[in-house]
Design a protein around this nucleic acid. Structure first.
Length: 823
DNA sequence: GAGCATGAATCAAAT
DNA sequence: ATTCATGCTC
């Protein structure tokens, strides 16, 4: 190794260095919070390049957000001292979108396909449910959409969903899934989940395509591996490994000698024009996978189960890849010891995890503070007072964050900060691109770009109001569907769709506007905007849309004070488009430019757009948004049972994930950490009495300051609720007697639960989150996300033994095994 | 087909 | 508390 490469190992601790130098093959880096995982990733990429193990273009690094991707790229560039052009750093979704743009035709799409966000897909699901005559009260579009999303994230085809459906609800969902998927194809659209799922389809159905990408990326690195879902797991497997279960036949059903096996991954004939040849093609001659998969993550920070992320991906890594090396990073470079003690003590209450113990040499530091306040207003004022105090001590506002479980909690804090005249920024909440006016404008672009997109059409056709109501829209859509054309074709000849005179007139006006916009898109800028050449400037197109349709004029004429803000948002969209035009000077034709713009807009999260704030604003955000960030001072507010942990999580037994979320929050803090709760809070409706979060009682006493215990044991300052009985009934879940305490297994350290709490103690519940009992019986056919179909051989205590077709017997932990019955 | 008023339902995290 | 849907009138 030359000195040039050796330089990249300097300053790394021993395990970090081993990870960077790892010779190849599967590698799991368990990176505790603040243990320098970004450092390991960036140094590893740079090291691979410098030692000549891989060219920049032969590395794929996958991150969780676009922002993280940009930062990783930047830091690799710094390390290498040169451009990182050619290096793929992307989120799973943007990497897949990029691949799918190129390969879209193989899947029955054109490369202009639209990416539907959750709002778009919700509308489409609703349309399908209504067409099916389903009761949308019982089968809410959102609920059904989430179920479909879960199916997709677990790579379940429509057929599998139908087979697995146990009750009427599941069957309705499966039917909606079938119709929805057909509609997506008809609309030339994919939802977020499809970006993963269809890429997996692509790789499974086209071994040559998979081989191409597999050969292209000799090393694959993944950040935040604990939050990957089964689809993402499969994607990585296909990219890196020998093909373990090549045949795509979804329902187990034996090998590739079975009846052609050409069951579509999702129904909807014609979606995959592929014949059966590729499915049944022999594997002979296929090159082995390079196996150079490095994943980095922390099981204690797995917080996206609701998005079907599966913590078992990281817990079972060695089982999946028996030759894997595992390196643990436990030295924390971020926080002082009291903060780490709090984090360690809390997470010790989880059972389903890899043991680890964070330590630091930054010293003990401040004690963690727990505070109870009489109500939410007092809580907000207390936090703001502390912000001011710390600011007086020289902590910049940009180094302070207020974190909460739900966005609804930001409001009170915002009010208090405003009253104190402190600058703040809120990350998340309603995404910029989700605002109605911004979505309207983008939908215009989407529909101009992809006329088959009926969701976008339905959204914009009557906005601003031009007298085209639901009935007319319905007629246009069904006529388009009946004739196999697009709404664009229909509005050119409205009479053919059987529209009456008045409707025809309104539609024709709209058609004229659309025609004008298409001219702009085609390059003939009508009114001297960027008249040179034929290159499309997206900013000009946005402007034309707002002008030609009269959208802007209507807002300007409005007296509604909110419309001013809407205009500002549209200006921001324009600025965003302008920035895009500057950064990515129109390569290729207008189609490609719009592809990239719309894809970028669809996949950008709000957090991605937040600039760093050197000039000092306090940051407010949810715990989920805080992942990966760090602040000198952190305030975790709303630590009350029902708020955090959220009542729905309590009900559905997701306490371990909630606890990990608390762990994420605590470990964001470098030097100061405060956790607060309010005895009374008005959240939805009138103020309610609250009880402290069970997580507060799991914090080790030694890590807390001397006033913290009072925040739980007594009611100093008269914070006692005055409306006794009714409030108690509203608490609801005060079920368990004392003694069900969570402290028992928690490693011996004294914690607040031991203090003999009054009301709060009744809530102590240690066993809420036991895994659901699963009773597998011998002979039962099951399916596994990794090993496909198999048969249960026997039960052995908690262990279930399964003989998988073609994979032999595996021993799996019954409660956690990724098994599903095949009915 | 649009606009308004009233009543009802919802209220977790987000690429 | 706020959003959303429905029903009524013009």
């Amino acid at each position: 190794m030359d000195a040039y490469a050796a330089e990249l190992l300097e300053g790394l601790n021993d395990p970090q260095r081993r990870a960077v130098e790892h010779p190849g093959g599967p590698l799991l880096v368990i990176a505790g919070a603040g243990s320098g995982k970004t450092r390991v990733l960036t140094h590893r990429v740079a090291y691979l390049v410098r030692t000549g193990q891989a060219g920049l273009g032969e590395i794929l690094a996958v991150t969780f957000t676009n922002k993280a991707a940009a930062e990783l790229r930047h830091r690799v560039g710094d390390l290498l001292g040169r451009s990182t052009k050619g290096l793929w750093v992307a989120t799973f979704h943007s990497a897949c979108a990029r691949i799918l743009r190129v390969e879209a035709e193989k899947l029955g799409y054109t490369r202009q396909f639209t990416i539907y966000d959750s709002d778009d897909s919700k509308r489409l699901v609703k349309r399908v449910l209504e067409a099916d005559g389903a009761d949308t009260k019982r089968f809410t579009p959102n609920g059904v959409r989430n179920q479909i999303s879960d199916h997709k994230n677990r790579l379940r085809s429509v057929e599998q969903a139908q087979q697995l459906a146990a009750g009427q609800y599941d069957r309705t969902v499966a039917d909606a899934y079938a119709g929805y998927q057909k509609q997506l194809v008809a609309n030339n659209a994919m939802d977020f989940d499809d970006l993963m799922g269809r890429t997996v389809d692509l790789f499974e159905r086209y071994p040559d395509v998979r081989a191409r990408y597999r050969n292209a990326f000799k090393h694959v690195l993944v950040d935040e591996y604990q939050d990957t879902n089964p689809a993402q797991y499969r994607f990585l497997q296909l990219l890196c490994m020998d093909d373990p279960m090549h045949q795509a036949g979804p329902s187990g059903g034996g090998g590739r000698d079975a009846t052609g096996g050409a069951v579509d991954a999702v129904s909807g004939e014609g979606r995959l024009p592929l014949g059966q040849d590729a499915l049944t093609a022999p594997l002979a001659g296929e090159e082995p996978g390079h196996r150079n998969l490095m994943v980095v993550g922390d099981d204690a920070q797995s917080i996206y189960g609701f998005r079907s992320a599966d913590i078992r991906n990281i817990l079972d890594f060695e089982d999946d890849f028996p030759d894997a090396e595992v390196i643990k990073l436990e030295q924390n470079y971020r926080s002082t010891q009291h903060i780490l003690d709090a984090a360690n003590g809390l997470i010790a209450n989880n059972t389903n995890q890899r043991p680890k113990h964070l330590f630091t040499d930054l010293g003990t530091g401040d004690e963690v503070r727990v505070r109870a306040l009489p109500d939410d207003h007092a809580e907000a004022r207390w936090v703001v007072g502390e912000v001011e105090r710390l600011a007086g001590e020289g902590v910049p506002l940009s180094q302070m964050a207020v974190l909460y479980r739900t966005n609804a909690l930001s409001r009170g804090i915002e009010t208090a900060l405003t009253q104190a005249e402190l600058e703040y920024q809120v990350v998340g909440g309603v995404r910029f691109f989700d605002r109605a006016e911004v979505k309207d404008a983008l939908s215009y672009l989407q529909w101009l770009h992809n006329p088959a997109n009926t969701v976008a059409f339905a959204r914009v056709v009557n906005r601003p109001r031009r007298g085209i109501g639901d009935t007319t829209v319905g007629r246009i859509l069904s006529h388009a569907a009946a004739t196999g054309t697009t709404p664009l074709d229909v509005i050119k000849d409205p009479a053919a769709a059987g529209l009456k005179t008045a409707a025809c007139k309104a539609v024709s006006t709209f058609a004229e506007q659309v025609a004008e916009l298409h001219e702009t898109l085609a390059g003939g800028h009508p009114e001297g905007a960027a008249a040179d050449g034929g290159d499309l400037r997206v900013a000009d197109l946005v402007e034309d849309v707002l002008r030609v349709t009269g959208y802007r004029a209507e807002l300007e004429a409005s007296t509604d004070p909110q419309d001013e803000g809407r205009l500002e948002n549209l200006d921001q969209l324009h600025a965003f488009a302008d920035e895009f035009d500057e950064e990515a000077p129109a390569e290729g034709d207008a189609q490609h430019v719009l592809d990239r713009f719309l894809q970028g807009a669809a996949l950008l999260s709000d957090a991605d757009r937040k600039a760093d704030n050197p000039d000092g604003q306090v940051t407010l955000m949810t715990l989920h948004n805080a992942k990966g960030l760090e602040y000198d001072a952190v305030f975790l507010v709303g630590c009350e049972d029902g708020v955090f942990p959220h009542s729905r999580a309590i009900d559905s037994g997701e306490l371990e994930e909630e606890r990990r979320l608390a762990y994420v929050g605590i470990t964001r803090a470098r030097r100061h950490l405060s956790l607060t709760w309010a005895r009374r809070r008005a959240l939805y409706g009138p103020p309610q009495s609250q009880v402290p979060s069970r997580f507060l009682r799991e914090l080790p006493l030694d890590a807390l300051d001397e006033t913290s215990p009072d925040a739980l044991s007594g009611q100093p300052g008269g914070g006692m609720p005055t409306r006794g009985r009714r409030d108690f009934s509203s608490i609801g879940r005060v079920g368990r007697g004392p003694g069900g305490g969570a402290g028992g297994s928690g490693g011996g350290a004294a914690n607040l639960a031991a203090l003999g709490l009054k009301r709060g103690s009744a809530l102590a519940g240690g066993d809420d989150d036991a895994p659901p009992a699963v009773n597998w019986r011998p002979g039962q056919r099951v399916r596994h996300v990794k090993f496909d179909a198999g048969e249960v051989v026997r039960m052995d205590g908690d262990v279930v033994v399964v003989r998988f077709d073609g994979h032999g017997e595996k021993r799996l932990i019954a409660g956690f095994a990724r098994l599903e019955p095949i009915t």
